[in-house]
Design a protein around this nucleic acid. Sequence first.
DNA 1: ACCTGAACACCGTTCAAGT
DNA 2: ACCTGAACACCGTTCAAGT
Lengths: 222, 222
Amino acid sequence: MAGSGQVRRPRLNRHLVLTEAVAFADANGVGALSMRRLAQQLGVAPMALYKHVTSKDDMLDGMLALLLEDVRETPSTGQWREDLRRRILATRSALIEHPWSQEVLSSRRQMTAAMLDHLDGLVGAMLQGGLPVDLTHHTMHVLGNRMWGFNPELFAATPASDPSFEVQRSALPLRHRHLAEIAAGVDHGAIGVETSRMHDDFEFNFALNLILDGIEEFRNAD
Amino acid sequence: MAGSGQVRRPRLNRHLVLTEAVAFADANGVGALSMRRLAQQLGVAPMALYKHVTSKDDMLDGMLALLLEDVRETPSTGQWREDLRRRILATRSALIEHPWSQEVLSSRRQMTAAMLDHLDGLVGAMLQGGLPVDLTHHTMHVLGNRMWGFNPELFAATPASDPSFEVQRSALPLRHRHLAEIAAGVDHGAIGVETSRMHDDFEFNFALNLILDGIEEFRNAD
DNA sequence: ACCTGAACACCGTTCAAGT
DNA sequence: ACCTGAACACCGTTCAAGT
């Protein structure tokens, strides 16, 4: 007679765990999302989840990947501004539909494959639309915050001491050609902490001046 | 002989708790910051903290307020672009010096007094520099992400059902004149959920077009 | 007024065990 | 191959008590 949670239990798998986790976070917020509560909702012992997800962090990364998957299906028009606008608005819609995603995104310390795929799609839209490489690079920085809703510089700066840094860099051309292409523009030798900070500062000021100049023009046109 | 943690204990107070919490988060990240560990570092029982801080959330808000205090001291030049640039760069420096702040900011669901003070200072710099009210309003939205490092729309949208909404709104003119001034520009009757979403959408697209137009100009000038 | 100790209801994750 | 139960080392916060 106890009608608590799910009655059917259609055999767990990663996708089911992730979709259920997304639904739970949508309904109750990430703060309330715990492995134990999610397991209970799935009518399963807490440790059953760990067969399909290596940790809670892995689960959170998987949840974000789920959101970004939808965005990747945005069709291409061949015009970079229109393509870019559509993709960015699609990303924004996804993040707004799942308000917890912003908080989760800003707590991640590593770029996941899903995030890199997503960025690569954006860069691809610009390059295929004929935008020069250097301007494409700048544009990614200008738009960074506006897509994710947080500052990507903070985790683009993978410390050089991290051994996974070199692996990630060498793997770039294979999975993310477009990212590799704009990275080649700045990659003279190793990027130290100082250099990378200088680069970030440059990009930030570029974006800031762009915005301020635009506003000033509006003002003078009035 | 056990040299664990602090030896002196100069009587707890709110400021001491907050500065120590900031130092702890700087050193170990917010993930590692717990009431128990902070108490241990201060050489005090966990519950001693609760005399100076009402909850962990209150402590996190206090920590952010501490960072924003420094920014408020930015001197004024009378030129809105220069004043704005300085304040934004000062904010950014503060957030970068304390990397945990972005994550904490994006987990807050309410604007605190400290955040409103900060925004009010920015709006004040623009209005006093002669920028029209409506353009000042737009500029705040364009710059939103770039200051905080996340999208302020998400928590500017206080639900109308929240009783504290009206209180906050009526208290605005007293503490935050400049914010009240730009709010008056859109505040025709109550702002429902639909209207506020439409407004956010408009601001988002305004910012996006501004950036894209700026980039396009760079491209053509090449 | 300020701090303590024990307790409550939680966490993520391990390990050995079940089927 | 997939799931369970008990256990470990944690959480934030309450309450009654100490000084």
